[in-house]
Design a protein around this nucleic acid. Sequence first.
DNA 1: TTCTTAATTAGGAAATTATCTATGGAGAAA
DNA 2: TTTCTCCATAGATAATTTCCTAATTAAGAA
Lengths: 105, 105
Amino acid sequence: MEKVFKALASEPRRRMLNHLTGGPMTVSEIGAHFDMAMPSISKHLAVLKDAGLVQEQKRGQFVLYSIAADHMANLLYGFLTPFCPEARKIVKDRKRASRQTGGKP
Amino acid sequence: MEKVFKALASEPRRRMLNHLTGGPMTVSEIGAHFDMAMPSISKHLAVLKDAGLVQEQKRGQFVLYSIAADHMANLLYGFLTPFCPEARKIVKDRKRASRQTGGKP
DNA sequence: TTCTTAATTAGGAAATTATCTATGGAGAAA
DNA sequence: TTTCTCCATAGATAATTTCCTAATTAAGAA
């Protein structure tokens, strides 16, 4: 949770996640939406990856990043469980759905 | 969202929220669970309050803090909506339930 | 091979955050 | 009133985060 919330505690990183909802993107494509040097983009993506919020996939000389929306949802629902009883049910339902669609529970 | 995630990006603050699930507590009561000077406790609570994750209530010379679990859940479900379609339904259901129980939508 | 593009790593400056001690203020108790 | 308790604020310092430029690695293209 530490890494997750630290990763989300940055506006550029949250914007990157939003961009990635449109599908996988290369580092340059993502960077095109930001007024920031490329190494900074790369580092932000590394933080998101370290938190498990995105995945990377090398494609020749490119690196494609994609969002790990399911994992992010599981983490946040899990965090909410102690505070919000309904979250427990959501987590359970998600696990069941995941089993049926082939994800490991 | 910036303030919320920055507030949650701290282990002591997340622990404080967990302690508060047991009900309202004074600053000293909360601080008793931490090896930290009182002003630091006070500051962490101020950060949580600024993010809307707790409420404070003065009681004589004491200050009672309590968790704003509903607000926290609404914020996180709202954040998840663009990434996780089911979150939208949850937000909608919560709004409906809130209207029925007297919360303003 | 040599050149170009894509991305990361390295190093350092500036801003933010966390923590402490010391102090201040408001309410209860003596 | 004076004193004590609870809590917040102020100021200083150490640690962390963010961002840049420069250099490096890796893959394609010429």
